[in-house]
Design a protein around this nucleic acid. Structure first.
Lengths: 164, 164
DNA sequence: GCATTTCGTGCAATGAAGTTGCGAGCGCGC
DNA sequence: GCGCGCTCGCAACTTCATTGCACGAAATGC
């Protein structure tokens, strides 16, 4: 694993004037390295084998990163929270794309043109979330690389399964 | 409990040319009666005490209603799915409002003016979700009726709690 | 460099929401 | 009324997420 992302991550964390720990660096580096938003499980799987970072620690670090504005939290359609590194100075207004097939989530830089719909009297809004749903390039029907077996982790998964 | 909603619900279900069962009528009537989207738990709590409808049945009925386009599913920020009756001929494009304090979700009829942001090459979209977040009239700071104790079920809840 | 304080981490237990299998029961066409 | 097949109730189960507690590591003071 190259140290480039690690170095960037460490620098960002140092900038918060809070404690610089291995877990924070590793998790943030993982997020920086990703090209889209990652679920907690994906982050855990991507962490170096020997890092010895606990599941719970990942949750706590992600929470911490969110409060420090180094990452932001996205709630998809599959009851799973996704996170991605907030490198660019992103405002509270976001657009996300979620693939209906593989559940991948990416951030869209551009917001399109959007004005909030009128709210009922007494309601106030301070944040707006736009989520586009559809198929990503990998899952598009015309894509020759498309392979259903690769998409076990898609939105349609939600299995569970009973074992006796 | 008045029978008005029940009658409407029964009529709607009969229109699907599928089986008309008590559970389906009761659940749909509950949704029709509500002024906003309801979580599974809220629906269960609102069902008549003596209806004897099982938790699992509610899940299944909600799923069925969704496939029949009699209800639609909203994923909020708290890992909970909410449903509301799809009385009006609503398209795949929706705007929702979610209160950050009490987690209440309502549907907004108007969509504002929105055009989708540009997607990366190869991506296709077929659905768009807009969620406005803020405070509802009941939770607005200036509201004299505001009472924190009423908002136990808010987004900040997510407790759990350990008991030994 | 070393002791102290403070904050972060690992572990295990716990919770809520949602799913699944299976047999019994009910709706509806005949 | 009868039977087929869809639904329901029950209980077990999975997944994701959170919490308490004790230990260990990072920063601070000296």
């Amino acid at each position: 694993m190259p140290t480039n992302y690690r170095a960037t991550a460490e620098q960002l964390i140092r900038g918060t004037a809070q404690r610089v720990t291995n877990a924070r660096i590793e998790v943030l580096a993982t997020l920086l390295k990703a090209d889209g938003a990652m679920s907690h499980g994906e982050i855990e799987a991507k962490l170096p084998r020997n890092s010895g970072i606990d599941r719970v620690t990942v949750y706590r670090v992600l929470d911490w990163l969110t409060t420090q504005n180094l990452a932001h939290k996205i709630s998809g359609d599959d009851r799973v929270w996704r996170f991605n590194a907030a490198t660019t100075a992103q405002s509270h207004q976001h657009a996300h794309f979620q693939c209906k097939c593989c559940a991948r989530v990416i951030c869209l830089d551009d917001f399109g043109t959007t004005t909030a719909p009128p709210l009922p009297a007494g309601y106030t809004s301070d944040e707006m979330d736009v989520t586009i749903k559809g198929l990503c390039a990998d899952c598009a029907p015309g894509n020759p690389a498309h392979d259903a077996s690769k998409h076990r982790h898609g939105l349609a998964r939600r299995a569970g399964g009973l074992r006796r």
